[in-house]
Nucleic acid binder design. Structure first.
Length: 424
RNA sequence: GGAUGGGUGGCAGAGUGGACUAUUGCGUCGGUCUUGAAAACCGAAGUGGGUGAAAGCUCACCGGGGGUUCGAAUCCCUCCCCAUCCGCCA
């Protein structure tokens, strides 16, 4: 969430930003509530001061005056409780609004209400492949080569689930191992993370568990939800913590399963592995000083390019328009890989600078040696590789006329073979 | 899942209803001394909010939330976490 004081002092900027981001939020109402809240808080502070004073005087007072003072104390506390109740009500209403206000946007982010305004920045090193046969999509390839069982997935868990089989299992692991290797060389701290997290953490990252439109599976009878990305767990990892400034930046990567209900996604391009309820992903996550997050975003984007250039997969880099940013992001780049089966680009990674939007609610701070007080860190996240979509890109771009799939050079050592053979 | 003991400032660790304005030690910062440092000694220093030009004043915070009380680190309820033991399991 944004800083309350910032919203009050810059309400015009915030309103303009909400407009650019296609995010309806009653900023004026928030400002009015915030002013009421401040004034009530002062009144409450004063009442508490009097109550404290009275309470302290009782210990020292002669016995015959105590009852009078106690009565006085009770009266003040009653008053304070009334004010507190009003304050809670105003606070709750203001809270709903402040949560609906998105992060501010980078000055260079393209302005537009939806993804049509997204801006292509540049393309990767690998050209789009020209086939002298009609390329198949990954669903057909998966069936022909006995690599993916959607039917079995449906039988066990329903539509949107799948079994990977045979060389697809090796390919998935090779992709993981390859991407992890790239990150290790860059001194990312590797982790495997919980696949569930407390709802409080989900909220802090900007996800809303439960509710009609939720993307999140929550576990009945607990305050836990299945994570939609390791961004949730890696961001939660430092919740409530204060780190020394000289430990920053922290670069982590986390391997987790990702679970998404994909509510409201029916009918959209979602064939095969493209939009599924469960997949595995390696996520990068960084905590930085505020002055360093812009550079870190470029760095994370560069890591994504390196990973996909290394795989020899054609892609383009897109600067996300304000209206398509999502609440926490200040700026976001997506990599879209060429998918011959769709004959178009499809999103494979996404990296965002969330500035202090997440750290404010998660209360993640840093301390500068010798300076008083603490400040909020900036958080960033980026996909190293989402295995489901990564596999689509590899399978479709590397398919051969004879029906086999060539294994990208960088994966051969991890896979132990250079080709996924066509079935006889 | 059960039992027991715990959670207090950067760290360690005292504090069982009013002098807590949270003892003490370590570490940190400033000073004295010193060519410089160490040691010793003196002093300062928590986090977040409100107000103020500032000094300051003030509110909240002792794992989270709630309660009892004029008054809670302390008592009660609840949740979370940690340790140890038991059970179960991979």
């Amino acid at each position: 969430m944004l800083d309350r004081k910032f919203i009050v002092e810059n309400s015009d900027l915030v309103k303009k930003n909400c407009q650019n981001r296609n995010a309806p939020a009653d900023v004026d109402r928030f400002v009015a509530l915030e002013e009421q809240r401040k004034s009530l808080q002062s009144t409450l502070d004063e009442a508490n001061r009097k109550a404290n004073e009275t309470a302290k005087s009782i210990g020292k007072a002669p016995a015959d005056q105590r009852e009078v003072l106690k009565e006085e104390g009770r009266k003040i506390r009653d008053e304070a409780a009334g004010i507190q109740k009003q304050l809670d009500e105003i606070g709750a209403e203001a809270d709903v609004i402040v949560r609906s206000i998105p992060n501010m946007s980078h000055a260079a982010a393209p302005v537009g209400v939806d993804d049509k305004a997204n801006l292509e920045l540049f393309r990767g090193k690998t050209p789009i492949p020209q086939f002298d046969f009609k390329p198949l999509d990954h669903v057909e390839l998966g069936e022909k080569l006995d690599l993916i069982d959607f039917e079995g997935g449906g039988r066990v868990a329903g539509h949107g689930f799948y079994f990977l089989k045979n060389d697809a299992v090796l390919l998935e692991m090779a992709l993981q191992r390859y991407a992890l290797d790239v990150l290790l060389k860059e001194q990312f701290t590797p982790t495997t993370t919980p696949d569930l997290a407390r709802n409080e953490i989900l909220h802090g990252i900007g996800f809303i568990p439960r509710g009609p439109e939720t993307q999140i599976y929550s576990v009945d009878g607990t305050d836990l939800s299945l994570v939609a990305t390791a961004e949730i767990t890696l961001g939660g990892l430092y919740s409530g913590q204060t780190v020394d400034a000289d430990e920053l930046p922290l670069k982590l990567c986390g391997i987790s399963h990702c679970f998404r209900t994909e509510a409201g996604a029916a009918g959209r391009a979602s064939r095969g592995l493209y939009r599924v309820h469960q997949f595995t992903k390696i996520e990068m996550f960084a905590y930085t000083l505020p002055g360093e997050s812009d550079d870190m975003l470029e760095y994370l984007r560069d890591m994504e390019c390196r990973i996909f250039d290394g795989l020899g997969i054609p892609f383009r880099v897109v600067d996300t328009a304000t209206g398509d940013l999502g609440g926490p992001a200040y700026r976001k780049y997506d990599l879209e890989a060429w998918m011959p089966g769709r004959n178009e680009y499809g999103e494979v990674t996404s990296t965002s600078n969330c500035t202090d939007y997440q750290s404010r609610r998660l209360n993640i701070r840093y301390r500068v040696k010798g300076e008083k007080g603490t400040r909020l860190v900036h958080t960033l996240n980026g996909t190293a590789i989402a295995l489901s979509r990564g596999m689509i890109a590899v399978m479709e771009n590397y398919q051969q006329a004879d029906g086999s799939i060539l294994v990208p050079e960088v994966l051969r050592a991890w896979m132990g073979k250079d080709r996924i053979e066509a079935k006889k």
